[in-house]
């Protein structure tokens, strides 16, 4: 298990370095000189040269890369070209908002998705099962930003129940919670359908296995058979998917944050890309990649804990 953990973490580090190199290459491939863009069309060559120097763009590329790696390893992601604030500070300021949004969206999607999937199995091949199937596919098909716009229209503009934009007032948990409801709803909707389908398929497969028949042969109540004997096995692929899901949810958070005018990593990165604020773009992408790798690795380790068969294979 320990060896497996070490191997997984080493792999994560390799991926992270690869992503950083790819990011760096991209900065040089995308047209538009940061310094000219930053200073506008009327800037003098001297001013541009000065800014290029300050951004470190006048140095050899390899040196820049080395410099970037060295600082990144110590947690220094450079400075914002505009505000001169450290990039890491900005990320740490905005990231909790995005994380709360992602976790809230995934949390309610997971709860409802598993419940709907298990319900469909208990009532399999009935009208209820078919209706749940149609509902799930419908939910999967609607993009998050469409849901977001309709959610604002209905609940914020017409009914005036919840705020349309922002993340609530600092220090006021109730207003923050109210501001979280609509974005989390919009972000999670697609996943409810997806998870319901996944859990249903996975659970149906498990319910055909012999150990389920054994549990029934001893007279265990059907609910216990489904929840303890079925779901316990069926949930394992769902966890693996959820790790990938969180990554995907954090990317769609960019749209949702834009629609809801909610401060977060999504708004930070779109703003920075528009202004060719490279240190912020690179720092944010690097941070999100690291976070994503952390989640995926943690999920793999969790699966190894949940499934004793996997655990034993790893022990060898």
């Amino acid at each position: 298990m320990l060896r497996y953990a070490v191997k997984r973490i080493a792999l994560a580090v390799v991926i992270l370095i690869t992503v950083m190199l790819a990011m760096y290459a991209m900065v040089f491939l995308v047209p538009g000189d940061p310094a000219s863009l930053a200073l506008g069309p009327r800037a003098t060559p001297e001013l541009k040269a000065l800014l290029r120097e300050r951004m470190g763009l006048d140095e050899p590329v390899l040196w820049q890369v080395w410099h970037f790696f060295r600082s990144a390893a110590t947690g220094d992601l450079g400075y914002d070209v505009w505000s001169k604030r450290p990039v890491l500070d900005q990320i740490l300021e905005f990231f909790p908002n995005t994380l709360i949004l992602g976790v809230a969206a995934l949390g309610w999607a997971l709860t409802l998705g598993i419940a709907l999937g298990a319900t469909a199995v208990v009532w399999r091949d009935t009208v209820a099962d078919r209706l749940l199937g149609i509902l799930s596919v419908g939910l999967i098909s609607v993009p998050a930003f469409v849901v977001a716009i309709y959610a604002i229209l209905i609940f914020a503009v017409w009914l005036r129940w919840l705020p349309a934009i922002g993340a609530g007032n600092p220090g006021d948990p109730l207003s923050q919670l109210r501001a979280l409801v609509l974005p989390a709803f919009a972000l999670g909707v697609g996943w409810v359908g997806y998870l319901a389908r996944l859990v249903r398929a996975s659970l149906l497969e498990v319910m055909g296995e012999n150990h389920i028949r054994t549990a029934r042969a001893f007279g265990l109540p059907e609910s216990r058979v489904v929840l303890r004997y079925g779901l316990r096995v069926a949930i394992i692929p769902t966890i693996a998917l959820m790790a990938v899901g969180l990554g995907s949810i954090l990317s769609s958070a960019v749209f949702v944050e834009t629609v809801f005018g909610r401060p977060g990593i999504g708004t930070l990165i779109t703003g920075a890309v528009q202004k060719r604020n490279y240190p912020v773009v690179m720092g944010t992408v690097l941070f999100m990649t690291a976070f994503y790798l952390f989640i995926v690795t943690a999920a793999d380790l969790l699966i190894a804990r949940l499934d004793p068969r996997v655990r034993d294979v790893l022990r060898r």
């Binding site: 296995e209 012999n210 150990h211 028949r213 054994t214 549990a215 042969a217 001893f218 007279g219 265990l220 109540p221 216990r224 303890r228 004997y229 316990r232 096995v233 394992i236 949940l306 499934d307 004793p308 068969r309």
Partner: peptide, 24 residues
């Protein structure tokens, strides 16, 4: 049952299953 390899749940210990099986 015929196949002892698949007759028990793979993710629960033998003990907890044998206790469950006495639910009646």
């Amino acid at each position: 049952f015929q196949d002892p390899m698949t007759a028990f749940s793979p993710v629960l210990t033998m003990g907890s299953q044998l206790v469950d099986f006495q639910c009646n």
